[in-house]
Design a protein around this nucleic acid. Structure first.
Lengths: 117, 117
DNA sequence: CCGATTGGTAACTTCCTGGTTACCCATGAA
DNA sequence: TTCATGGGTAACCAGGAAGTTACCAATCGG
């Protein structure tokens, strides 16, 4: 997962409507574009563009049969992202911090002590 | 974590430079804005805007001491997001699918059988 | 073949994002 | 007090994202 794919993935997910599309496709795999669009206020073309964007981010896979394009949610990128973050932020995840304020002030104090030392 | 916060969080993360800022703050907690900006080509004000955006998404916490503003990475939103996804996509995560193509075609076949039934 | 259905492209508008420069405020040190 | 330093606001610009309407292409059923 390079930075370009990561950008595309996160940008794709940073949109309420698109996340809802994924949920719909999770619930009903193989929907057509038109069927999907029926759940939104937006025009069909608007939905189509979002679908294309999701497919570019590999969050959606589509297969045509005849004149209909069947859409499927693909969870793999999210799995990859989750795994990556779990390792990348492991030091912090281990802490399982709740009281942010206390920790931040603790670090500020440390820095202050370090400076004056 | 409501949809607004989720939008802000994902949008904040969907930018290479901002992710790098988080990494820098992870490595050196308490950096000033100026120190952070020194790692980028961009103007100081450009960096400042990104910092403000990160703080709005609660990925960064800042405390002023004197005239300097000290910045700290806050992992909590990422933890929350990870936990949420783990449950939300649990059905798919359990599968641990590798061969997407096979699965997709399997579903397509099911749909076809269902249709012709 | 003919018409309805599904999908897609093209062109356009609107608004937001990412970045800039210019300028101002507050603070710490000599 | 003076002035260099760190921080911040305002105004602006270019480009991309999100959405629209109008139109075209392919396919399936009668």
């Amino acid at each position: 997962m390079n930075d370009d794919r990561l950008d595309a993935l996160l940008a794709a997910l940073a949109h309420r409507g698109r996340r809802r599309m994924l949920d719909l496709l999770m619930a009903a795999p193989g929907m057509s574009v038109k069927a999907l669009a029926s759940h939104f206020e937006m025009s069909r073309i608007g939905v189509l563009k979002h679908v294309d964007l999701l497919e570019a981010a590999e969050l959606v896979v589509s297969r045509r049969r005849g004149r209909t394009r069947h859409l499927y949610f693909n969870p793999v990128p999210i799995q990859l992202l989750r795994d990556r973050w779990t390792t990348h932020y492991s030091a912090f995840f281990a802490e399982r911090v709740v009281d942010v304020k206390a920790r931040v002030e603790g670090r500020a104090r440390e820095a202050e002590e370090h400076k004056s030392a």
